[in-house]
Design a binder for these strands. Structure first.
Lengths: 218, 218
DNA sequence: GATCGTTCGATAAAAAAATACCGATTAACA
DNA sequence: TGTTAATCGGTATTTTTTTATCGAACGATC
């Protein structure tokens, strides 16, 4: 209870998916959920589900299951998604626009309140209701907007420059979609997202399958 | 050499990032790369890099490093990315459009040649040079296009229906961006992509950091 | 109220992945 | 030619993650 348990990255990665399912159940009015159902939905073992839910501190009832509301609250709290965090986004290319258009972030406690770009044609426009500012103003505006999360969607060569500006602007967490490692001070956390990683796994799985080999499940 | 070595998922996920870096080096004319440089770029240990590269079968030279060209070829071959595979995409919402606009796939051996949607306003239009067809024609057109990879970007409630159509259309691999588990025959592989997973990790890291705790690096 | 099937949760075992260690090979340079 | 620094690649170890096992709690049914 007092100290922090070891955090398990795979578990944390799975939590949003649980949350998504649980929110769906809430909408339909379901109040109880048992492990087998979640396991089917997640395509993982029942025991994994129990371990995952355990980290949130929620305790289920034997023979019954878990209370959906409790789980939702606990997961949100664990992820610090209970009160929306505001973020800025740099790079309004196709990926940046996609993220700006993704309504799901609302449920994930993330509100992207402004976008930045270097393209004069884009500066001053709006993307999905958010204004696009000149990227050179990022460092100046971030503190005024009081945001602490930055999302980088610029091409790889510009990512470090943008990251530097974010750090100077007081950003403490960077969600990096550019495929480069960013140098940041120790008190800033970075999460690099490599979408092609999934494609690689898919490719290898497919190749094996077509060769008729059996492989370990993901 | 004869039998298949155990495939390590984390390694496979990292391969595209190596590849990206190596292609960059090729462009600049570098022909040799050593582990420490890659390790810095990847933000992981040197030993991990060596183990990763080992699965491709490439052997480096002590005191020198690896040949960039060899690595590029070996990784592409390992991932079956050496001759482009064609794919279709379902759902031209913001995410679907972003994927259609991502040029990087060319380097990853993926060519999305057609898109599908159910919205009459989108059907018949073009998105980044690819035509958008009525999703009801997916099952009919997929075999004629001779594609075996399908990308699902439709809202979660429609994902299973789309997947069924893809399977009937001869698709053997599905890259699923909808947050649901898909039921498919055993000879079809599915890779589910949960973008919010990374955000969850970032959130937890940030929370820990602000509490002044030390955690294990990712 | 007794029995059965279901589910939770703790402990233990297995598998997977990351890390450490160390000898061998190479280039650079005195 | 000898020495030094850098690097690879194999084996061994540790850590992390998944999977298995089992007793106890609960609801439903008879």
């Amino acid at each position: 209870m007092p100290t922090t348990k070891v955090l398990k990255l795979p578990t944390i990665r799975r939590l949003p998916t649980y949350l998504y399912k649980l929110l769906e159940m809430q909408k339909v009015g379901l109040s109880i959920v048992a492990t087998p159902e979640l396991a089917r939905y997640m395509d993982i073992g029942e025991i994994v589900v129990r371990k995952d839910l355990a980290v949130t501190g929620v305790t289920g009832q034997p023979g019954v299951g878990y209370k959906v509301d409790e789980l939702v609250a606990a997961i949100k709290s664990f992820l610090n998604w209970d009160n929306a965090t505001e973020a800025v986004l740099a790079g309004t290319g196709s990926l940046g626009r996609a993220l700006l258009g993704y309504e799901g972030f609302a449920e994930y406690g993330l509100r992207v309140i402004a976008a930045f770009d270097s393209d004069p044609d884009k500066i001053g426009t709006e993307v999905h209701g958010r204004q696009v500012f000149d990227i050179s103003r990022l460092e100046e505006l971030a503190p005024r907007l009081n945001v602490h999360i930055g999302i980088i969607c610029v091409p790889a060569p510009y990512a470090q420059t943008v990251a530097d500006a974010m750090v100077k602007g007081g950003i403490k967490a960077i969600w990096n979609f550019a495929n480069v490692s960013l140098k940041v001070p120790a008190d800033v956390v970075v999460q690099r997202e490599v979408i092609a990683g999934g494609l690689a796994v898919l490719s290898v799985k497919m190749a094996r399958r077509s060769r008729g080999e059996e492989e370990t499940e993901e």
